[in-house]
């Protein structure tokens, strides 16, 4: 089976040493690592937004050979933080997802409901809170229907319910064959992931199933924290439980 995302020897001067990895389709993949470890850089390399020496391929096709418009249908990237200078209404920002589909407007109304944005649909996007802006960005990414979704710290600005809903949504898209790669800081969310990539000082340190990778030794070495299992509060959506397959 061809990898949904294959990166070979991609490096970015001063930010990331050569990284190679292959991710299968239909997985929710977490990207973890301390601040400045290269998570955002790796995501942008994967999205084809940074020039690198190595190669990046989506579904077996080197991205250099894919026309830019078609790239907009194959993969999408969500920035860590949005800088909306102009007051486009929320609905029209989401509709931008369909640029590469001839602006057909498909799925925009559905996205408003899925991301709890219906009440904000006509509000100018530059007046929203940080969490609301992130939901708009995620709604736009989702509306592209691109099979490779690359999200840079989508959960950081969200409240706990919306964060859980985004994880559930990631699982849902992965179940129909897409690949979701998201960087995150809260390692307690790791049980929702199929795979974890650990970045440390610009290098890919480990990749594998969360339980295999996030060992106490690695956590101490990479993050400088001691991991301990203890009874604590578990938060979940009332109607579902989140489990990795």
């Amino acid at each position: 089976m061809t990898a949904a995302l294959a990166i070979h020897n991609a490096a970015v001067e001063g930010r990331m040493r050569p990284v190679s990895l292959e991710l299968p389709a239909g997985k929710v993949v977490g990207l973890v690592g301390p601040n400045g470890s290269g998570k955002s850089t790796l995501l942008q390399v994967a999205a084809g937004l940074l020039d690198t020496e190595g190669t990046v391929a989506w579904a077996g096709r080197p991205i250099d050979e894919i026309p830019i418009l078609e790239r907009g249908r194959m993969a999408t990237w969500v920035p860590q933080e949005a800088h909306f200078e102009f007051g486009f209404p929320v609905r029209s920002v989401i509709a931008q997802a369909r640029f590469a589909h001839g602006d057909d407007g498909d799925g925009v109304e559905e996205a408003l409901d899925r991301f709890d944005l219906r009440p904000l649909a006509d509000r100018p996007v530059n007046r929203l809170s940080g969490g609301e802006k992130m939901r708009v960005l995620l709604a736009r990414a989702w509306t592209t229907r691109a099979p490779l979704q690359l999200w840079d710290e989508p959960l950081a600005p969200l409240d706990v319910r919306h964060a859980l809903e985004i994880l559930m949504l990631a699982r849902e898209i992965a179940d129909v064959g897409s690949t979701v790669v998201l960087s995150l800081h809260d390692l307690r969310t790791a049980h929702c992931l199929d795979l974890v990539c650990v970045m440390d000082r610009g290098e890919l340190r480990a990749i594998g199933k969360p339980d295999d990778v996030l060992t106490p030794d690695l956590l101490l070495d990479v993050f400088g924290v001691r991991a301990r299992t203890a009874p604590g509060m578990i938060l979940e959506l009332p109607q579902t439980t989140l489990n990795s397959r």
């Binding site: 999205a47 937004l49 790239r71 249908r73 993969a75 999408t76 920035p79 909306f84 592209t144």
Partner: peptide, 11 residues
């Protein structure tokens, strides 16, 4: 609304 975002959407 952002150059990299635009590029990622196919511009």
């Amino acid at each position: 609304l952002g150059a990299k975002e635009a590029q990622s959407l196919g511009v």
